[in-house]
């Protein structure tokens, strides 16, 4: 039981670290992690590690705590029942938010939501400064030796400019 909780925590910590999420899960989680057995799975936090919430850059207890819509009593695991959301981390693809659900003092669900809207993200301005931005031109390619493009299939080759060049020169 405790072991599986540790595994979930480990996974959650992994998600948080990958996503760079600033976890604001209440620090009641800490005692669970520290009680994890020494032979816990490799991805579970070790005893001498910082608490998983800390690894994700946790705020101090109570600080920026957005979660806790359940608000149940703390159990002997130290976890308060409810659903807790991280504040969400913004990266190039949008906002990633981690949510955990605690029932009966156990984490029963851990999930991360990813942006679905695609790439509305802005382009790194520092990169743009060093690159030349321009309008796309469309020129005739009858004076080139070869054409570079996305890999065509043997079927789409027949319709390609490269094919026309090959026919003209063979």
């Amino acid at each position: 039981m405790r072991r599986s909780t540790a595994a979930v925590l480990g996974t959650l910590t992994g998600v948080a670290m990958i996503a760079g999420v600033r976890m604001t899960v209440p620090t009641q989680i800490v005692p669970v992690a520290e009680d994890a057995p020494a032979d816990a799975p490799a991805d579970a936090p070790a005893d001498d590690d910082a608490a998983p919430a800390d690894q994700g850059g946790a705020a101090p207890a109570g600080d920026e705590d957005e979660g806790g819509d359940g608000g149940g009593a703390a159990s002997d695991t130290g976890l308060t029942d409810g659903t807790f959301k991280g504040t969400g981390a913004k990266n190039a693809y949008g906002t990633i938010q981690v949510t955990i659900t605690v029932k009966g003092g156990k984490i029963t669900a851990a999930d991360a939501t990813y942006p679905t809207a695609g790439n509305s993200a802005t382009i790194n301005p520092a990169a743009i400064k060093k690159l030349n931005a321009s309008a796309l031109k469309a020129e005739n390619g009858d004076d080139v030796d070869a054409v570079s493009g996305a890999t065509f299939t043997t079927g789409s080759y027949r319709e390609s400019l490269q094919s026309a060049l090959d026919k003209a020169k063979v």
Partner: peptide, 11 residues
């Protein structure tokens, strides 16, 4: 030529 990404017959 770098193929135009929308017009297959242009660069």
């Amino acid at each position: 030529g770098v193929r135009h990404p929308w017009q297959a017959d242009k660069v």
